[in-house]
Design a protein around this nucleic acid. Structure first.
Length: 420
RNA sequence: GUGGGUGUAGCUCAGCCAGGUUAGAGCACUGGGUUGUGGCCCCAGAGGUCGCCGGUUCAAGUCCGGUCACCCACCCCA
């Protein structure tokens, strides 16, 4: 029986890890500029946390969670997203008491039992950010601006677009929901099977259905954006104005319906046409009720999360190469009693922050230089029997093919030269 | 859960439709051409239960059935 990984779980090999680091580091650096701090939270939580926050009628909770019974009989779940856990940590550690505003970001693996396809895995990475403690629309703007700034930094904005909408709040959403149901109810039999069910449990979802019949029917359905209360309208206008001030283009899409039930007011998605069916690269919005829902003090919040694998795919389209690892120098040894000295040099260089490689087994100089070339070494240090007898080593510049001999006690100065 | 596509060397694939000696190519790997000098070139070598199980046949990588895996799409979403 051959070993293999679990379906939908992928290895990230050294070939691509530099790109991952670059993207993750860029995110961290930019989020820090905006005052966000990293938080690390567990990969598992009590199932209840996710059920209560994400919503029991969502696909995630209904059929995609990796849930297990722990040894003490409690139900625990591998996190399908990050927000619920961050909110739990925010409440449990009383972060609301330490300052009015909390800005947190996280990166890590999420788990959803879906059928894998392009850009969709069962174990996938997300980068997310959450801002707690204010209803001010500037917070929404800042979150979106920060996300966009990050996407600019990694140069993928030509492949994506920002879509924006509002889901209303506790004042206007219920009445809109009724209005929508009232409109759809007479047409129920024409809806797809799925949407007939949605009409009862989560009618907003019908607006997002991809079935032709349902699209046709919902085309003339009342729009949330036309039914926002004054406060929600103002809030959305603020966000729109702010985006326009910074020349960030957005598309108003009243059909954005998030897959998680906790959103209120502002919702947005970063979409692309480059990845096939899985077109959402990042998404987020405001969730003013969630902290209280999970037992914390009433605390408004806004956040987003980014799908790393999808972002990596986009980044590969923009920057196809250039993320390979290089080495500063290669140490070749040739002749009797040179390996030990070469090995010592390797240790010394590395101790001084110079990355070097050398061969383990005795190989011809030609083979060693070939390897130096393949590793992209800028210099080859040739430790030869003949030179060593004279207290010297050869330094070969791999770009220009020029060589010079230096005294072995000058190796320390050499390291300065190699490092720039 | 449903549909379509694909499984042959480490990787990308040809060979299958019209079954027939030792199953191929390119890249990568190892050695050599240069008794101590990389990239380009040349030569050689190593590397395969042709996904797995069964069937048809004198003969199966090739045809048939089953099965597993991967990919894409539906769905859903980051």
């Amino acid at each position: 029986m051959k070993v293999r990984s679990i379906r939908g779980f992928k290895d990230i090999l050294p070939d691509s890890i530099k790109r991952w680091h670059y993207i993750e580091d860029s995110a961290g650096n930019i989020f820090e500029l905006y005052g966000f701090s990293e938080i690390r939270i567990p990969v598992v939580e009590f199932t209840d946390i996710f059920a209560r926050s994400i919503g029991t009628s969502t696909d995630i909770v209904e059929k995609e969670m990796y849930s297990f019974t722990d040894r003490d009989g409690s139900s625990i779940t591998l996190r399908p997203e990050g927000t619920a856990g961050v909110v739990r940590a925010y409440i449990e550690n009383s972060l609301y008491a330490k300052s009015t505003i909390s800005k947190l970001y996280y990166m890590g693996m999420m788990f959803r039992h879906e059928r894998p396809q392009k850009g969709r895995y069962r174990g996938f990475y997300q980068i997310g950010a959450e801002l707690f403690g204010t209803k001010d629309p500037y917070a929404d703007s800042e979150i979106i601006l920060m996300l966009w700034r990050f996407l600019e930094k990694i140069e993928v904005t030509s492949l994506i677009r920002l879509e924006l909408s509002s889901l209303g709040d506790e004042n206007c959403r219920p009445s809109y929901k009724q209005k929508l149901v009232k409109y759809l109810r007479p047409l129920k039999n024409e809806l797809c099977e799925n949407c007939q069910r949605r009409l009862e449990v989560n009618p907003l979802r019908i607006l997002d259905c991809k079935e032709k019949k349902c699209k046709e029917i919902s085309k003339d359905a009342p729009s949330m954006l036309d039914n926002l209360c004054d406060n929600c309208n103002k809030h959305l206008d603020h966000v729109k104005d702010s985006l326009e001030n910074f020349s960030i283009k957005y598309i108003l899409n009243p059909r954005i319906v998030r897959g998680l039930d906790y959103y209120t007011r502002t919702v947005f998605e970063i979409k692309t046409d480059e990845l096939g069916a899985q077109n959402a690269v990042a998404a987020g919005g405001r969730y003013d009720g969630l902290v209280e829902e999970l037992g914390g003090p009433p605390t408004p919040a806004v956040g987003f999360s980014i799908g790393m694998e999808r972002l990596v795919l986009l980044h590969e389209k923009i920057v196809p190469v250039g993320f390979q690892k290089g080495v500063d120098a290669f140490i070749a040894f040739i002749g009797k009693d040179t390996k030990k000295t070469a090995f010592q040099f390797a240790y010394d260089f590395r101790k001084q922050g110079i990355s070097v490689e050398m061969e383990y087994e005795n190989k011809s100089l030609k083979t060693q230089l070939k390897k130096a070339d393949k590793l992209g070494a800028k210099y080859a240090i040739i430790v030869g029997e003949e030179e060593l007898a004279r207290g010297k080593v050869k330094v070969r510049n791999m770009g220009s093919s020029s060589e010079e001999e230096i005294n072995i006690d000058k190796v320390k100065q050499l390291s300065i030269k190699l490092s720039n």
